[in-house]
């Protein structure tokens, strides 16, 4: 059964321009099979657990996509550092809930790979208990003919801290739907996503920081490079709910366009249900400065090598955070492959 689903719909439908308010995907649900997704967990920082005794956070992809999440969630507790690899071999849906226990400080590295032409849907909810600190690194290097939906949700309790670092390199069309609810006082969320898109790759990002409690802080940054006829839309929402006094949010983008045929759209949005807040957004869009290229050329790099080095260096600030050197090499090879 092929159905059409709305995805990444903006919370405020105020845009006349078609396509800015959200997108649609066709999914053949009969192709979705449990055995098409495998999940490997490394390290002993993550263990399975029973139930979660609190409401799960809502998502940013929208209610239509929620209908696809019929599978059961695997529920886990994070007590320390761990790695997770999610591998698709066809249409699949995976759904997980991870709870970072009170006071725990952990780093989780997730790698998403494989191939799913119809749909690969990865839905993860993180719940950070009081004082928990989580750094989540998510690397997406799916095959180039995959349609990927990345549904990331998080609920932050008092004084907790979530840092999300992500690198999106693969898939043909991908949707990043991320919603982080800052429900506890003083909780803090920082996101830094990088993407590299070439050919006819398309990336649709809907990132929401929902400030509910007072003195919450969010900082979302999304940087990337577009080549060939790639396209990207960034919807970034700072949603200040009534009562989040003293909250601060920021969203920033830095996009490098390396071809005339790319399509780059940005839709920063700040919703204010509270007066005593501070929300900022900024964007820089452009090509690599001739000055930097020339400087590198005087040091022996030909023009192509100079561009490659500059782009590689942009991604360095993410790849350098990976302790696993094999993974780093795989990513660097993939980046070089795109740029050569």
């Amino acid at each position: 059964m092929t159905d059409v689903y709305n995805i990444n719909t903006s919370p405020a439908l105020t845009f006349a321009k078609l396509g800015m308010n959200g997108d649609r995907i066709s999914v053949n649900t009969s192709l979705i099979k449990k055995e098409n997704v495998e999940q490997y967990i490394f390290g002993n920082g993550i263990t399975d657990t029973d139930d979660i005794d609190e409401a799960l956070p809502g998502g940013a992809a929208g209610q239509d996509i929620d209908r696809l999440l019929s599978t059961e969630s695997r529920i886990m507790t994070v007590k320390g550092n761990a790695g997770i690899t999610i591998s698709f071999s066809g249409s699949g849906v995976i759904r997980r809930v991870l709870k970072v226990a009170r006071g725990v400080e952990a780093e989780v590295v997730e790698v998403v790979k494989g191939k799913a032409p119809d749909i690969a849907l990865n839905s993860t909810s993180y719940i950070l208990e009081k004082n928990a600190r989580l750094k989540l690194i998510r690397i997406q290097m799916l095959d180039k003919d995959t349609l990927y939906v990345d549904d990331l949700r998080a609920k932050l309790h008092e004084d907790s801290y979530l840092e999300v670092v992500r690198l999106d390199l693969g898939s043909k069309r991908s949707y990043i739907a991320s919603k982080v609810s800052l429900e506890g006082k003083n909780s803090e969320y920082k996101a830094h996503g990088d993407y590299l898109l070439n050919g006819s790759q398309r990336l649709d990002i809907n990132m929401i920081a929902e400030h509910i409690a007072p003195d919450t802080v969010s900082d979302m940054r999304c940087d990337g490079v577009l080549l060939d006829s790639a396209s990207k839309i960034f919807r970034g929402v700072l949603d200040f709910k009534s009562g989040c006094k003293g909250a601060k949010g920021a969203e920033n983008e830095d996009v490098i366009l390396l071809s005339e045929d790319v399509d780059n759209q940005s839709l920063p949005m700040i919703l204010c249900g509270e007066e005593d807040v501070e929300g900022n957004h900024g964007a820089s869009v452009g090509k690599i400065s001739d000055e930097i290229i020339y400087y590198l050329m005087t040091r022996g790099f030909d023009e192509e090598a100079a561009v490659r080095l500059i782009i590689r260096s942009k991604f360095n600030n993410i790849t350098s955070q990976l302790k696993n050197s094999d993974l780093r090499d795989v990513i660097n090879r993939q980046i070089d492959g795109v740029l050569s």
Binding site: E291, L296, R299, G300, S313, K314
Partner: peptide, 20 residues
């Protein structure tokens, strides 16, 4: 002199020497 973020002077100089 121009700033080149994301690349250390050490690896920059080594690549440069190799290019030259």
């Amino acid at each position: 002199p121009i700033e080149v973020p994301g690349i250390s002077m050490r690896s920059f100089l080594k690549s440069s020497l190799q290019q030259i």
